[in-house]
Design a protein around this nucleic acid. Structure first.
Length: 425
RNA sequence: GGAGGGAUGGCAGAGCGGCCGAAUGCGAGGCUCUUGAAAAGCCUUGAGACGCAAGUCUCCGUGGGUUCAAAUCCCACUCCCUCCGCCA
């Protein structure tokens, strides 16, 4: 959630920044007005309470002094003021509910350096690494599901039999490639990130406060008999760990990585780009996530982006870095860089990582703070990015590594992890 | 799943319905003493909301109830611990 103070202190500027993210101005106005109403009601409640507290204390004093009749008289009057407090409280709840509802629709404020734009088309390619169209001329590339299907390392039909569409079954060298990718990613980042093995099911409270379950949409799977949700990303437990904590400043930044399975319902996303392993309900991912001081978050974002790029560089995959425009930013992010790998089999750039700066948006809802060395507390900034999202990297390796004889060449850096230079089945 | 115990500030740990936002100890910060340090002594030290400020309000696991008044009494829930059962 955003800082409501920004709306009362500097409405025009804040509204202008939100409008860049396609937020309707009426929504921002209504948040400001409701916040003001709330302030007023809270003040009335406080005043009423003060009166009541003072009265109650007088009753106590009179009783101790043995002045019974005076105490009884006062007590009768206080019963009424309790009714008044209850009425005011009811109004406060009403206003707060309305405010929460509006605030829940307001996304994080885009960073001023983010380019203007309203859609994907306005995103900016920052740089391209390792890609030369000449490399692909004079040869045909098949999509990964063809290559992998023929090798028997990917079985889409059995996956559908077990679980329906958008699930995968990997076999033999395909399963080994998946496992190797995970190990590779964890090893690559172990010096800067603390490895965590978190739960894959979390409470409603946790997934809500990390921003992955809202009144308006749910990408997550719910367990039937318990108040638990399967995580859509490792970010959820990594950030949820510190909810309601006040961290010592000296502990920051906290950099974590976690290998988890991720589940996404992706309702309505069926159809396009779903062939093979491009989009799955269940996939494996090594997530990088961190908490830091606000003044460090720009530098941490650059470093995190570099770390995520390093995964692709080391694997020798051609990719480009795309900065999302204001109108295309995800709800919680103030700034996002997508990493897209070139997939020759489908001749497309596929998003394999989304590196996000979330500023204090997530920390505010999750109440993740730190104690400043000079005194006082403040919300941390949070960041996250995929260190390696397996399905699309897996398929990119298959498409790039395909050889005339139908086998797949394994990138050199991955050979020790997969245990073979060539996947032949 | 069954039986019992518990949840209070950074930690440990008190707390007869009113003088309790809360003893005490530890930790942390400041000061005195000292050449310096230790020891000792003194002082300070939870979070949040509103307010220029004085100050007021909220928070003792969560939610409800009783009462003029709840950390304290009642109800429900959640979590933790111990024992039993089951189990990778």
């Amino acid at each position: 959630m955003i800082d409501l103070k920004l709306l009362s202190d500097d409405f025009e500027a804040t509204a202008a920044r939100l409008v860049r993210k396609r937020v309707p101005i009426e929504l921002v106005r209504s948040a400001r007005d409701l916040a003001e109403s709330r302030r007023q009601v809270v003040r009335e409640v406080d005043d009423a309470r003060q009166e009541m507290n003072a009265g109650s204390q007088s009753v106590g004093r009179l009783m101790r002094e043995g002045r019974r009749e005076e105490a009884d008289a006062l007590r009768a009057g206080l019963a009424d003021s309790r009714g008044r407090i209850e009425a005011l409280e009811a109004r406060r709840r009403e206003v707060e509910e309305a405010l929460d509802d509006v605030v829940a629709r307001i996304p994080n404020i885009p960073d001023d350096v983010v380019p203007d734009g309203t859609s994907e088309d306005d995103n900016r390619v920052v740089r391209t690494h390792g890609y030369d169209p000449a490399d692909y001329e004079g040869r045909s590339y098949e999509p990964h599901w063809e290559v992998a299907g023929r090798l028997g390392i990917y079985d889409g039909e059995r996956a559908a039999k077990l679980s329906g569409g958008m699930f995968s079954v990997l076999r033999g060298g395909g399963a080994r490639l998946l496992r190797g990718l995970v190990d590779f990613a964890l090893d690559l980042h172990k010096d800067r990130y603390l490895e965590i093995a978190p739960p894959h099911a979390v409470r409603s409270d946790v997934i809500t406060r990390t921003g992955h379950l809202t009144k308006f949409e749910s990408q997550a799977y719910k367990l039937r008999d318990d108040d638990l949700w399967l995580i859509p990303t490792g970010e959820v437990p990594l950030m949820g760990m510190h909810q309601d904590e006040i961290l010592p400043e000296a502990d920051l930044p906290l950099r974590y990585m976690a290998y988890t399975v991720c589940w996404r319902r992706e309702a309505g996303a069926a159809g396009k780009d779903t062939r093979g392993m491009q989009r799955l309900h269940e996939f494996h991912k090594v997530e990088l996530a961190e908490l830091c001081r606000p003044e460090d978050s720009d530098a941490e974002l650059a470093a995190l982006l570099g770390d995520c790029e390093r995964s692709l560089q080391t694997l020798g995959l051609p990719y480009r870095v795309v900065e999302l425009c204001a109108g295309d930013l995800t709800f919680s992010a103030s700034r996002v860089f997508d990493l897209e790998v070139y997939s020759p089999g489908v001749d497309r750039w596929l998003e394999v990582s989304s590196v996000s700066l979330v500023t204090d948006f997530q920390a505010r809802r999750g109440a993740i703070r730190y104690r400043k060395e000079g005194g006082g507390t403040a919300f941390v900034h949070t960041l996250n990015g995929s260190g390696l999202a397996t399905p699309r990297v897996w398929s990119a390796i298959v498409e790039h590594g395909q050889q005339p004889d139908g086998t797949v060449r394994v990138p050199a850096a991955l050979v020790p992890y997969v245990g073979t230079e060539v996947i032949a089945g």
